[in-house]
Amino acid sequence: MNTGTIDRREAVAKLLDARDGALVVTGLGSASYDVHAHGDTDDNYYLWGAMGGAALTGLGIAQAQTAKRVMVITGDGEMLMAFGAFATIAVAAPKNLDIIVLDNQHFGETGMQDSHTGMGIDLSEIAKASGFSETRILRHLHQVDQLCKDLPKPANGPRLFVLKIEAKNIPRSLPPRDATYIKTRFRTHLGLAPC
């Protein structure tokens, strides 16, 4: 199957420029680097491990912070490891959780092995069948511009957007690896006290 053509850094930059107060959770690997490359901010929560945990960490934040929008930015491999999360998130039905899958159809961090999304598995259809309120596949950068306009609109439930990005490794932009620092910084941003 053809891989995408969207430049991942440009797409993520557009989404972050339009975040409008949204809390951002990133899946390990390139998604974290893409978000960090645009600027390291207190309302970014980067994962460096716990593969399969990004969308569900986002769900927990969304349930605790119902007045804020939560945007999970992750990769196809990370989301494939959270297959059950499609069901759990759909049943939980948060109206403030959007999942952005940067889908290069490969396990980019480990040597660009083919992933399931390049072999017929369509994450947007899985989300749709699970009961997400909106799903979409984007193949061109101008479609990301439209998505940026649509994201702030009220949602009826969780939404998932698959961005078919170019499969290439670009220079890494490494977020801090100190997990407690990122945690405390994120909570402080929300007015929550450290232990």
Binding site: V25, T57, G60, I61, A64, T88, R187
Partner: peptide, 25 residues
Amino acid sequence: KTNVLTTEEEGVAIATGAWLGGLRS
């Protein structure tokens, strides 16, 4: 707020998120 899970590991990530957002899980 409660969540039924498909597998227990999901709860670990959700609980971490809940704490990040200010809820005890």
